[in-house]
């Protein structure tokens, strides 16, 4: 199993959700997060005073899938969240040792 963690622009959430639905992914966890990467923070000037926007609001999506589906999911997220501009986000893929469905105790892929 793999965990796919994607950081995307907030307004792209609906697109990503839809494109994941299209390939049959139904479960995901969404978090409103703030951070910065190469995009860095920036300054906004208002009435001569500087306001530093140090962390940029983003959405984090977490999905666990079978190894075989990881690539497909990554491609789908990539396509849906791309605007071609700076700050489009990042996707991380990492291995998952175990998954357990609390109600039934099912393990592994069955628990997804």
């Amino acid at each position: 199993m793999k965990k796919i963690e994607a950081i995307i622009k907030p307004f792209k959430l609906d697109d990503v959700k839809e494109s994941l639905n299209d390939i049959g992914i139904q479960g995901m966890t969404i978090t409103e997060v703030k951070g910065y990467g190469r995009q860095k923070g920036h300054k906004e000037i208002y009435r001569g005073a500087e306001y530093v926007v140090d962390f940029v609001p983003k959405i984090k999506i977490e999905i666990i899938v079978d190894d075989g589906r990881a690539e497909e999911v990554v491609t789908s997220i990539c396509k849906a969240s791309n605007t071609g501009k700076i700050g489009d986000g990042k996707i991380f893929v990492m291995p998952v040792d175990e998954a357990i469905r609390v109600r039934t105790g099912e393990r592994g892929s069955d628990a997804l």
């Binding site: 907030p10 409103e32 997060v33 703030k34 906004e44 000037i45 208002y46 306001y51 926007v53 962390f55 940029v56 609001p57």
Partner: peptide, 18 residues
């Protein structure tokens, strides 16, 4: 209303003001 939506809104405001 949370820190997150607050940040989004403020940035839009600053940019539009500019």
């Amino acid at each position: 209303w949370n820190d997150w939506s607050q940040a989004l809104l403020r940035e839009l405001f600053l940019k539009t003001a500019e």
